[in-house]
């Protein structure tokens, strides 16, 4: 722009030269200094813009400033811990009061209105959701980390399933639903895997199943010589065929698909499948929809038994 202006000025100088010269001498000297400062400033901005642009583009492509992803992930986790503690404290207080109220209700110390019990049940029901939500966020941060998965430890999968059923059976029975589990063979033995990863996956599956079941949820643990399987089945209306390809998408929920308000984050199944694959396994879904009398939804998690697995059956 500056150069172009100069050329134009040179071209028109013979035409206006004399008159312009006379007019310019009539202007205050300070204005000249100001104009010079403006031109130098504009030139400086233009030059710095032209020079810096390629450098910025280089940085954006990941060349010149390396970001330590592992460090970033650790810092995020530390922030998460702080945040979790701060959020957990008031939540524990609320739940504590809810349980005190429930005990008072049971002891007949306050008016035993069914509406009050329903409200307390609703508060209680949200607590396991909160636990799952927080652990999902934590796993999500860990999944972003470039560090390799945790070291494999000896795990009793029956024990993992038992813990999750303990956690959900009280919630389910409040809603008139039952969670049943079993292992085949009954003495399932020990396998080498990451117990917290299985716990995350199965907790997400059972949470879902309890939500959609009509009356029953079944969790079945089986194995073959190379893999073990956890099947989580519910007798709900069955996941419609058009939704099955999307059920593992990040953020997808059936409500969102129908354009309604979401009641969950839609992260659970995404995390479950990502974790299953990270450990060399897979997570699949099958369903039969109502009005078929056999309507149900079942998720099947399969994971390798791991090195040196033993078992009473083999």
């Amino acid at each position: 722009m500056v150069i172009l202006g100069g050329i134009v000025a040179l071209a028109v100088a013979p035409v206006f030269g004399n008159r312009l010269f006379t007019v310019l001498w009539g202007v205050e000297p300070l204005t000249y200094l100001g104009a010079v400062a403006v031109i130098i400033g504009l030139g400086f901005v233009s030059i710095s813009y032209l020079v810096m642009r390629p450098a910025n583009a280089g940085a954006a492509q990941g060349g010149s400033v390396p970001i330590d992803m592992a460090q970033w992930s650790r810092t995020t986790l530390q922030y998460f811990e702080l945040f979790h503690h701060d959020l957990g404290r008031p939540l524990r207080r609320i739940l504590g009061k809810e349980r005190e109220l429930r005990a008072m209700l049971a002891a007949g110390e306050i008016n035993q209105s069914p509406a009050v019990k329903d409200l307390l049940d609703e508060i209680e029901r949200q607590a396991p959701n909160f636990r799952l939500m927080m652990s999902n966020i934590q796993v999500l941060i860990q999944l972003e980390s470039p560090e390799s998965p945790a070291e494999l430890q000896p795990v009793e999968p029956a024990q993992v399933v038992r813990r999750i059923v303990d956690r959900y059976s009280a919630v389910a029975s409040e809603a008139g639903k039952e969670v049943t589990w079993w292992a085949e063979p009954a003495e399932f033995g020990i396998i080498y895997t990451d117990s917290s990863a299985i716990e995350h996956v199965v907790a997400n599956l059972v949470d879902n199943a309890v939500r959609f079941a009509t009356t029953h949820v079944e969790v079945k643990l089986t194995r073959n010589p190379t893999h073990f399987f956890i099947r989580v089945w519910d007798d709900g209306p069955g996941l419609p065929a058009q939704y099955r390809p999307h059920v593992f998408d990040r953020g997808w929920t059936p409500e969102a698909a129908r354009g309604q308000e979401k009641t969950s984050s839609g992260l659970g199944l995404f995390i479950a499948r990502t974790l299953a694959r990270r450990y060399g396994g897979e997570l699949t879904v099958e369903a039969v929809t109502a009005p078929s009398p056999d309507h149900h939804t079942a998720f099947l998690l399969s994971l390798p038994l791991g090195p040196g697995a033993n078992g009473s059956s083999n």
Partner: peptide, 11 residues
């Protein structure tokens, strides 16, 4: 425990 102190610390 609180979850954020969870599995890794448990291990």
């Amino acid at each position: 425990t609180q979850y954020a102190q969870g599995p890794e610390r448990e291990t």
